[in-house]
Write a protein that binds this DNA or RNA. Structure first.
Lengths: 337, 337
DNA sequence: CTGAAAGCGCTAACAC
DNA sequence: GTGTTAGCGCTTTCAG
């Protein structure tokens, strides 16, 4: 830095001002400094800067599972918003399916990031609380208390799926459960409540968020006397696996069975798949999370929970049930179109 | 740190030694220091440390496209290997499809990472060279010179696909090209060379790595008088889109047309898809890249290119052609199984 | 093992 | 606008 100052014929302080874009520098000198820096190949040292400054202007983002493309969309929005607020993003993935999440968080704590954003955290509440005492934390998609949380309204999502199917005329709907997965219990709750509210029969098949679950659930259903005419899966992957198994059994989707997923992932949008699914407004989630972190950095001390509203994306895996409908329902169906 | 030293009743230097795990500290004192640190909630400041140390013990990883799940696997391996060598990984995604890659790289340069790993870089050779002058760079999947490169042998991959199809008895094979995509030209080269070597008819349909390409290519082929009995797609996504379009046209895969993809992504492994595809040894790629970076940090100055060998994963989208085969070939087919 | 001292590269006050 | 003076929190060196 001294070298740059010498090269530009100014003081080191002036160089410092230019480097962080202060407005109170004359254009002439600014250019001289920039030119000198370029000539010398000077690049400010981030470590030194953050040591001298109080804050790092950096948000640490820990991603539970990089394989989940859903996270990527949230990150996009997060990045745009963070950038707009003068923050940089530093990522770290919690490899090995959550095993190293603490490590990832601690690394960022040592880096003294201004705030931490956890995408799909599996941290124990205790561990999370301990970390939250050191640094503002925003959890996306989680359910913990004591930290900021941004998530979609899974219960409403479950309701949306059921409402859609009921409107199509279905009267017996199955739900393939997501087990311990994030939001799975709320999705189930929404499913059950909506089924009860609309007076349709329902059944819940236990499972998790995996592909195997989808196939096994169908096996399970096929053993019953009566197959539901519609299935609401805990997420898109399960839905796709279920469809695969249904078709292997000679059933047509949506003619014989309708299937609805959750998350509106990249997979659901594939034309081969073209899955009707509940969409999480990822960009909004990212935006809200970034703003949330910003506010915590700016001093707000009490954590809040933001719930964003999901919506339904109707594609080609849902349709009216194949059983002949009574005249009345048929008219309703027509009105739907 | 002074506080911890006081609390533990030792010198600050000793605390420093303990914090970075030096072996020449008695267990007794070490424990005293650790306990004191825990009691005070002390956490070393990474910025201060890297300012004082020469190196940062950190590798910066820039990911071109987080939506590409292929990268996630490479990262896993990268992380394991880096960790084993005492390195930490810091990620940054080049959002907006390559537009911000320079920014991401510069950020890491300011952080003074020991080396940079670029996953799927789209940087101009000039820009890359400029960065490489400041910090060792390893490009994964690229093709540039002047930096370390780790990539799979795309040409061999193309050959593998053709060899597999020829063994099944195919005599007219189409290739849906990957255009400007990474490695696409080499895949095409391998395809053409192998077709020539085995004396089978070939046709190349231009495209890129997108889903649209797969569908359009099939439209294109359907307009011809004679449909190839097998298709080698530039990547898995294209292959899946092609299969979709083929089936929409009433053709069966693999009965009427065999399809082979490239990359062995998560998508190909989905049971619904079950795509025969060329597999890139991601873990090996990750491992080699980490080792490469390590060596550069340790002093090796001349960049090298590592080419790892792909292999074929045979699944259910490839099979013998439907046209009746002469007796001779039929026996070959049998021998294959 | 300790204690002291110097310095990593930068920012931040303060006077000029 | 500019130069000066302190540190930021840690590592490192070196004598004891």
């Amino acid at each position: 830095m001294d070298d740059v100052a010498a090269e530009a014929g100014v003081s080191r302080a002036l160089v410092s001002l230019v480097m962080r874009g202060s407005p109170k520098v004359s254009d002439q000198r600014r250019e001289a400094v920039v030119a000198a820096a370029a000539r010398l190949g000077y690049r400010p040292n981030a470590a030194a800067r953050r040591l001298a400054e109080r804050r790092s202007n950096t948000l640490g983002v820990v991603i539970d599972d990089l394989h989940n493309t859903y996270h990527a969309d949230v990150l996009d929005a997060l990045h745009v918003e963070a950038e707009a607020n003068g923050f940089r993003l530093l990522l770290n993935a919690a490899w090995l399916r959550g095993r190293n999440e603490s490590q990832a968080v601690e690394m960022f704590l040592e880096y003294r990031v201004d705030a931490l954003i956890l995408l799909g955290s599996r941290l124990e509440p205790d561990a999370l609380a301990a970390f939250a005492a050191e640094c503002p934390i925003v959890v996306i998609g989680g359910e913990v208390s004591g930290v900021d949380v941004v998530r979609n309204d899974d219960k409403r999502g479950g309701e949306l799926a059921v409402e859609h199917l009921v409107e199509l005329g279905h009267t017996y709907i199955a739900h393939i459960d997501g087990g311990e997965g994030a939001g799975a219990d709320r999705r189930r709750r929404g499913f059950l409540d909506a089924c009860a509210a609309h007076g349709v029969r329902s059944v819940v098949i236990p499972g998790d968020f995996s592909e195997e679950t989808g196939a096994e659930a169908i096996e399970h259903l096929l053993r019953d006397d009566e197959l539901p005419t519609a299935i609401f899966a805990a997420n898109d992957l399960v839905a796709v696996a279920a469809i695969d198994r249904l078709e292997a059994a000679g059933l047509k989707v949506p003619d014989d069975v309708s299937v609805v997923g959750y998350d509106n992932t990249w997979l659901a949008a594939l034309r081969t798949v073209d899955l009707t699914t509940v969409n999480q407004p990822r960009r909004e989630i990212g935006r809200v999370a970034a703003r949330c972190a910003q506010q915590r950095v700016d001093g707000r001390s009490s954590p809040v929970t933001h719930v964003v509203t999901p919506d339904l994306v109707v594609r080609s895996t849902s349709g009216p049930p194949s059983v002949p409908l009574p005249e009345v329902s048929r008219r309703v169906r027509g009105g739907q179109r």
